[in-house]
Simulated assay, not measured.
Amino acid sequence: MSSNLNEQTMAVVAHAAGDLRVEQVSLPAPAADQARVAIAYGGICGSDLHYWSHGAAGESILKSPMVLGHEIVGTIVQAAADGTGPAAGARVAVHPATPAETGEPYPADRPNLSPGCTYLGSAARYPHTEGAFATEVNLPARMLRELPAGLSLRDAALAEPAAVAWHAVSRAGEVAGKRVLVIGAGPIGALAVAVLKRAGAAEIIAVDMFEAPLDIAVQLGATRALRAPEVEEVAGIHADVVIEATGNYRGLASAVRGAVRGGRVVMVGLLPSGEQPALISLAITRELELVGSFRFNGEIDEVLQALADGSLQIGAAVTHEFPAAEALAAFETAKDASVSGKVLLDFQ
């Protein structure tokens, strides 16, 4: 699509549960603080899959058609008119969050916990926050992170989910020289393995139900891979740190069992809303620290630098790439965790 002010752009839109379309949507002139970005790649996230499969992601219910996508990279074709942000021609990654004040308190240095925070491609509020799975989009200049010299758009395509993993590992504290158990080797778990390797973990043990994600985890730095281990095998690991990345109460139970007494469990997998069964008595008697991890803050800048200098290697996490016009096939592939890791859409 050309770089002038287009009235329409091709986009991937969720209309309802089971109804995903690639169609033309309106593209208004950008606001003064917005840049126009030609999207190069978009990574399919679990939330995108939920909007397509269920018409909701947790308590965020799709009430009208919404453009999906928040894991995106691209090139600025028109800089923000107010002079903020990178210049036209800059290659950028995107921090998709917009913190908002609601009067409810949260730590000032942790804007990811802002109660009114919105995210690209989210139905948490209505009208929904449109995503960026489109040929061209208007994005606030403050969201844009210029890529370091030498880092390609393709190599930066996983910067957003890698920042989620980086934040989760940071919530674990010092991991150098420690034994770490990663429950769930899907995209976030696999990326956590890569971040843990960079951080100097001595042992990284990955657990999953399928061979394919475990193979990816090993490529990214796991020193041991366990497929659907028995309870006794998990309990015998005695990990100093556990990263729970399944978003399933059974995964959380394995995390609690696999942690050493006095260890820390980082919960990055988002469990369904409402009450969930948990081995709380075991966590108490072992004095485990159960720590939540939600999205990220400025870690995306550290991720981009680590990708540029080569200290973070995450390429193996990408298993499939589809033209954006074949988005439905891409979503079908991404839904099957037994065969896919991160699936990319190519909008070029």
Rank of each mutant, 00 (worst) to 15 (best):
A35R: 04
N4F: 14
P65C: 08
T84Q: 13
I72D: 04
G42N: 08
G83K: 05
V12K: 06
R36P: 00
E59P: 01
T75A: 01
Q34S: 00
A38M: 10
P105V: 08
G46A: 04
A31C: 04
D82K: 05
C45H: 12
V13H: 15
L49S: 01
Y51V: 03
T102W: 01
G18S: 06
H95N: 13
P28H: 13
G18W: 04
E23C: 06
P30F: 11
A87K: 14
I76F: 01
T84E: 10
S3L: 07
I44V: 07
P86M: 15
A16R: 09
H70C: 05
V25G: 01
G103T: 08
N6E: 12
A97T: 13
S3E: 09
A32V: 09
D48A: 05
P96V: 15
Y106V: 00
Q78M: 03
G89D: 08
V25K: 06
A56S: 12
V25A: 08
I61R: 13
G18L: 02
A16S: 12
R91W: 03
G69W: 01
A32Q: 13
A14G: 03
H15G: 02
A93S: 05
I76T: 02
G69M: 05
N4A: 14
V13P: 08
L27R: 04
Y51W: 00
T9Q: 09
P105H: 14
V67P: 00
N4R: 15
N6W: 05
L68R: 05
R21W: 01
E23M: 08
A11F: 02
A35L: 04
G103E: 07
Q24M: 09
S26E: 10
A90H: 07
D19W: 06
P99R: 14
C45K: 10
E101G: 06
G55K: 04
V37I: 10
G42V: 04
I72P: 00
T84R: 15
G46Q: 07
A57F: 10
T75W: 02
A80N: 02
D82T: 09
H54T: 12
D48L: 01
G46N: 04
D82W: 08
A32Y: 09
T102K: 02
W52V: 13
G58C: 01
A87M: 09
A93P: 00
A31L: 13
E104T: 15
A17S: 05
T98M: 15
